[in-house]
């Protein structure tokens, strides 16, 4: 256990990676830094139960720990860990052949997405949240992922490119198609 973990809270992710390679105890700081964010991200792209999310995150952090020496310092650590999480969720889905029924989002996020995609602004917020949530769950997985990363996790195009391992151009195309699919499904939903 670390004596004063607060002393290390100002360390950058890259510094913590180097420290962890010397002493695994520092890995706890990285985990504390990312576990909530990643849990939220996993919930948004998969809507697994809390127990399943914990299992997925456990596997993610163990994978991260095993592959610390493979971390490319030119990359952002957050992009790298998100990438591992993304891959782990896909593996989990393949194993369970599961598809989410709803994606958990809050009102603020639903409004942000509505503004981005220019959905009917007269719709009540209460309706909007659940409708957007169901709509997101009905999208193609890759479209759901890019929308969650862009509008909920607030990742840049560069970061999304690093997480999903796709060229920047492909990311832009995917976001555009994802918005289009969401709008089309929203239109059908309204009917």
């Amino acid at each position: 256990m670390l004596q004063n973990p607060e002393d290390y809270s100002s360390k950058t992710d890259n510094e913590l990676v180097s420290l962890t390679l010397g002493n695994q105890v520092f890995f706890a700081i990285l985990m504390n830094r990312y576990s909530e964010k990643l849990a939220r991200y996993v919930r948004r792209i998969s809507n697994l139960s809390p127990e399943e999310i914990e299992d997925v995150l456990q596997d993610v952090f163990i994978k991260v720990y095993k592959n610390l020496n493979d971390f490319d310092q030119d990359l952002k650590f957050s992009s790298w860990i998100y990438r591992i999480t993304h891959n782990q969720v896909i593996s989990h889905h393949r194993a369970k052949s599961a598809r989410p029924q709803m994606v958990e989002i809050d009102e603020a996020l639903a409004n942000r997405l509505r503004a981005e995609i220019d959905l009917n602004s007269e719709m009540a917020s209460k309706d909007l949240q659940s409708k957007v949530s169901i709509l997101l769950a009905s999208l193609k997985p890759i479209h759901r992922e890019v929308l969650v990363l862009r509008f909920f996790e607030e990742k840049s195009y560069e970061e999304i490119s690093d997480i999903l391992k796709k060229p920047n151009g492909s990311v832009a195309t995917l976001i555009h198609s994802a918005k289009k699919e969401l709008k089309e499904k929203y239109g059908k939903f309204q009917q």
């Binding site: 914990e54 995150l57 456990q58 163990i62 095993k66 592959n67 020496n69």
Partner: peptide
């Protein structure tokens, strides 16, 4: 979340998991 990180560290210790050496990736 601190419990979670302690749990993961415990698993790492129990299973004697170590970071793969740089040589493996090279």
């Amino acid at each position: 979340m601190e419990n979670f990180s302690n749990k993961v560290l415990e698993i790492i210790k129990q299973k004697a998991i170590k970071p793969r050496p740089k040589l493996y990736f090279w």
